[in-house]
Amino acid sequence: MNAHGHVAAAVFPDEARAAFAAAYPDQAAKLGHGLVGHELLTLEALAELAERMPAASVEYNLGALPLGVRPEDTPGNGLTLGETIRTIETNGSWAVLKNVESDAAYGALLDRALGELAPLVDRRTGPMLHREAFIFLSSPGSVTPFHMDPEHNILLQIRGQKTMTVFPAGDEELVPAIQSESFHAGGHRNLDWRDAFRDRGTAVTLLPGDAIHVPVKAPHFVENGSSVSVSLSVTWRSERSVAEGELHSLNALLRRRRLPTGQIGPTPETQGVRRLAYRIMRKLGV
């Protein structure tokens, strides 16, 4: 129920929840959502949110970048964050507001959205852990470079159009094991791009009211359409995603000592002996 006493409509309608249930956790899936026009997701509301957030939780820069740009080569845009958001239609920039769930109103919105999916997630990968929300604002023509993320993720398109090209998780040609290991040790999420990869991806165009489920570490890049884009990303971890990170980190420790690395199966949460070995090695500082 909202502040006016009305029962809030579902964030994810029945057919979206059914599509999500069929795809989770390993397949990308296009979904629908009901947050277009939400009062917390207008440009002015987001500019005000950005101005009250800690500096460490906001990132913004020029938007028209090559798919393989290095993090240290990304140029700034010369504007304040509030100016960037209020003038995003014309300033050629990109901004992300991180961990907006730390603001009470946005935290309630995240809880509402993920609460609708929690029973479906629980059945497959256990309880939702470490829930977070991010808001992406991009000028026309912006590109988010080829990268992967460590969380289960649903991106909801609020305004404008973007095309996300999603690649299968677990393809070692796209993400070699050694890159996964360095990623879990704190390495950058951007990946090496080769034009030959493009045909392996599935391009999904997102209009306002569309959403996409992106599996853990499924590589993807995003190309913005000809108008301003606003997207909300709702994410969580699971025992499966945590276990996968632990097993890659164990392999990194073993590889550094020139010891044989282990296979990571499709249900890493069941590889308890290796996960325990990693925790012991980490505790001992091995």
Rank of each mutant, 00 (worst) to 15 (best):
G186T: 10
V204Q: 06
A55L: 13
G285V: 08
G201T: 06
Y278I: 05
L81N: 06
K98S: 15
S102Y: 08
L35S: 02
S231N: 05
A56R: 14
H184K: 12
L114Y: 09
V242I: 14
T267I: 12
V166L: 05
A23Y: 01
E239M: 07
K283W: 15
A118N: 11
V286S: 11
H4T: 15
L129D: 11
M281R: 13
L97M: 04
L65P: 02
S227L: 09
G76Y: 05
G160L: 00
R17W: 05
R17P: 01
I280P: 08
E44W: 11
F183I: 02
L62K: 12
A113Q: 00
V121L: 06
N61T: 12
V58P: 02
T163H: 06
D14T: 13
G262C: 08
P219L: 03
D103F: 04
S231P: 04
R123H: 13
A196Y: 09
A45M: 10
R282D: 13
D210A: 03
P119E: 08
R237Q: 15
V242R: 11
I135M: 04
G262S: 11
G32W: 06
L43R: 15
A8V: 08
E239C: 03
P54W: 06
R70Q: 14
R194I: 07
G160Y: 01
V286D: 09
L114M: 13
G32Y: 06
R237F: 10
D111T: 10
G34V: 00
R131M: 12
R274H: 10
R131G: 08
A243V: 00
T84K: 01
G107W: 02
P25S: 02
A118I: 05
G265C: 08
L65G: 00
A8K: 12
V36A: 11
F12S: 01
P215M: 03
P266M: 12
L129Y: 14
M164W: 07
